[in-house]
Design a protein around this nucleic acid. Structure first.
Lengths: 181, 181, 181, 181
DNA sequence: TATGAATGAGTATTCATTCAT
DNA sequence: CATGAATGAATACTCATTCAT
């Protein structure tokens, strides 16, 4: 709903109808229309963060971890094209949110990814000449770019996943330390 | 202006004042508020496309070309943080625009990048197991992610450029065909 | 309100204030500003039509019927000078309305009057050389002319009624078949 | 032009284009948009008044005079359906004008007609029990009603004229003093 | 006289939010 | 907890008018 119409186009009364409640009822659960969006985001990304924290450490090396991160980020959206659009597109529609873009939840996500990279550098699995945080942002952006066009288009979910894995491989290979002879 | 406030938050009268004209004058040059945004986008990306077309062919190999693309995309925004925000963030606020996301100008950009990759594959400089269009989208997204956080933050332009070059290197190395012994 | 200021001059917010509700509330009951006008018209003329239908048949001859029609049309407005102005003057301010001028409700009114005349012709009470519909339009127009100047002026209601009855007599006598010796 | 679109819908720039001049040029000849309308009215009705003044006195009796008035009022519009609409419909769209509805030019017209009736009463050709001014207003209104529907419809001009003559006959017969045996 | 680019006051309508029930 | 009728602030856009040329 939110996604099909975009956040600014979606009317609170439509959201309410879609949820099967009256307009006013929305305000028993959310402080404002914007709060609905923030809650969606925090819920989604928060869950993703939790998932990553629990699983990443168990994986043997950076390659496996990056592949896992990609699968998680993309996989969590795979079956909910609309949510994907909400998060990829619509989130950027809220000014107040934008000012919190480096907000805890999102920063946390970036930190988790950056830590994987930094750890890879310590292990000698990742080249030293790049900033872990830059990689985190670029990886997020790259997947976001895929998700955005996928969410707006009509390609099957499988195609998104395959594209994401290709991107994962580019990053994995691209992050490896240059072979020293 | 548009960028500081976001597109939906910016009032036409504010845009007019910032431009030093009366409200009505805006409508002598733009069909609607949304048209202002689209014009900005078409102008910027159109120029970028033209620039790329003219220069890419002259470059010797895919590595140089990818580095060039990155420099162009990022460099064209470097001195105009606000425009960066408009294009990276705000453009996604317009529904009509979103429906034209695969619009000529943007598609053209993707095609140019994809063609560089495809050509690289024909030359044996780029691994065959990835889709050129996927690379184009991912590269765009990765840079967009950097630009977004840069535009919203307060880092100096130099930092953006350095980050972008790191991303370029990751992609360049990541795209190389796996060494076959 | 509507009448004092004219339809185009009346602001929706003024109409709302006069009605003792908030601006937005108007739109719970009317589709648009123009709809307010159309509703007024349909309500007024519709009621007039109903009244005429119920009473005309019971009257013995065409003279009585014409007199009755005049009394009804004028009488229904007598105590609402402002409504008179709305209907006589302001209705002509709406283009969309004009295109529906032959709209059901008004056509119905003309048909009722025309049928009285046509029936009079069949009974031999009305001269045959005039078109019933022309009479209907002329009678409407004549009364409308009186109502218009009355509504805009400050004459007491009684004067309007007396004038209307004079017009009724002119029509009644004017419609009689010429005496055949 | 003015008529096809209505006065409120017609844009000054359209009027200018139709006249083959630039927007600003209009204001060399008219004080305001409303002034265009008033000028049209004054011009048309003023000419009608002049015409009536010159010809009415020469006619032998009230019947001939009423018939002449009708022919003049309707005839002057016959070939200009659009002007008819301007005068019949559009004039009522201007508030300032409405407040001048009893304005000199229109009052003059009513006075001319009323004087014909009053003179008829003095000659014994018109019944004494009706007010000359009421007749003037009713006659104007009756013709206005015909003209309005004619201007908005698509009937040929001849039909309007025939209808007007029927109305004239109704008035002429209706105004005659009741036969006293 | 004539132009037409620029103006900026003016307003219908929407829709997030509230609160009496 | 839930409702949904009522609210009223907020804003893109139009178009009559002006005036420098």
């Amino acid at each position: 709903m939110l996604a099909r119409k975009g956040f600014h186009s979606a009317r609170v009364s439509e959201i309410a109808r879609a949820a099967g409640v009256a307009d006013g009822t929305i305000y028993l659960y959310f402080k404002s229309k914007e709060d609905i969006l923030i809650s969606l985001f925090e819920g989604h990304v928060g869950q993703l963060n939790q998932e990553l924290r629990q699983s990443v450490a168990a994986l043997p090396d950076t390659s496996a971890r990056v592949a896992h991160i990609v699968r998680c980020q993309v996989g969590s959206l795979r079956r909910q094209r609309e949510l994907a659009e909400v998060l990829s597109v619509t989130l950027r529609q809220s000014n107040r949110f934008l000012r919190q873009f480096a907000a805890p939840t999102f920063s946390e996500y970036l930190d988790i990814v950056a830590e994987v990279i930094a750890d890879g550098q310590r292990r000698g699995e990742v080249r030293e000449d790049i900033s872990p945080l830059v990689v985190a942002r670029a990886l997020f952006g790259a997947l976001d770019g895929l998700i955005l066009t996928w969410a707006l288009g009509r390609s099957p979910a499988g195609r998104l996943e395959r594209a994401a894995l290709q991107v994962a491989e580019v990053f994995i290979q691209g992050l490896r330390p240059p072979a020293t002879s």
